[in-house]
Design a protein around this nucleic acid. Structure first.
Length: 262
DNA sequence: ATGGTTGTGCGACAA
């Protein structure tokens, strides 16, 4: 089973890049974030044509939006509001083998890392706390995989410069603390880091604002795949498809993260 | 310290 997650930053604008990803990697389950697409406008046909008969989507106009695209049947599909907002950040489904899939898009949190002056950062911190509470309610003994743009780069080697990023939203100590508490609350295992050493730099996002993203290489690992302990023995490998950042003159600022299971 | 770019959809706003 191959799982892939990708913050696509508009599913309609980049449907061609998604087709290229599918043809190159042939995922069994593809989770997308920032589809920026109301459900009635979702481009179903390219997925159906490639054998992805099962699609669970939840989108809205302009912002956010998530999708689970699958070759295998999706059962018990649902969605969850976070921080009291129905803003299309989390959907879930269950595979025939009873593995629960969660596709998630955590708010970015704005620019200023102070919850007293920046409501978006306060929202993000509340969201991370809610993540811990949500995971604490669940049985760690169930096979479960969570994929998405979690908008936190937790480890020192998940950012280009730990020291220079300590005051930058996505790598501040308070975010990392809450992110780690969430991870521990659910017994979540960081799947890519089971294969890529902690000492090795690993990024899934590069800003659009850099003059040359590849040359400056000031990336962050914001996109994650977590699994519960029952899936850990079945983990087979993980990759970050850095090349996808250069596939097109107008790429997503995120690249796909791939995890093979079973 | 500042500004740098992108998507949506034609205003800002979010990232």
């Amino acid at each position: 089973m191959r799982f892939v997650t990708w913050n696509i930053n508009s599913v309609r604008l980049r449907i061609g890049l998604i087709e290229r990803l599918i043809d190159a990697l042939s995922p069994d389950v593809l989770c997308l974030q920032e589809t920026k697409c109301p459900d009635e406008a979702f481009p179903h046909a390219p997925f159906a044509a490639r054998g992805y008969a099962y699609r669970h989507i939840w989108g809205m106009k302009s912002y956010n939006g998530v999708a689970i695209i699958s070759r295998l049947p999706l059962m018990q599909m649902g969605q969850r509001d976070w921080q009291g907002r129905a803003d299309c950040r989390h959907i879930f489904a269950t595979l025939p083998d009873q593995t629960e899939i969660h596709c998630l898009y955590v708010p970015a949190g704005g620019d200023v890392p102070d919850p007293d002056v920046n409501p978006k950062f306060a929202h993000k911190l509340g969201f991370l706390d809610e993540g811990a509470a949500w995971s604490r309610e669940q049985k760690v003994s169930r096979p479960r995989i969570l994929l998405g743009d979690l908008n936190v780069a937790p480890l020192e080697q998940d950012v280009w410069s730990h020291r220079q990023m300590l005051g930058v939203v996505s790598h501040t100590p308070i975010e990392v603390e809450k992110f780690t508490a969430w991870q521990q609350a659910g017994g979540w295992i960081d799947a890519p880091r089971c294969f890529i050493p902690l000492e090795e730099k690993l990024y899934s996002w590069w800003s659009y604002r850099a003059q040359d993203w590849e040359e400056s290489n000031r990336g962050r690992r914001l996109d994650h795949v977590w699994v519960t302990p029952p899936l850990a023995p079945a983990l087979r490998g993980a990759h970050v498809l850095r090349a996808a950042r250069g596939w097109d003159p107008k790429p997503s600022d995120h690249v796909p993260v791939i995890v093979d299971v079973g």
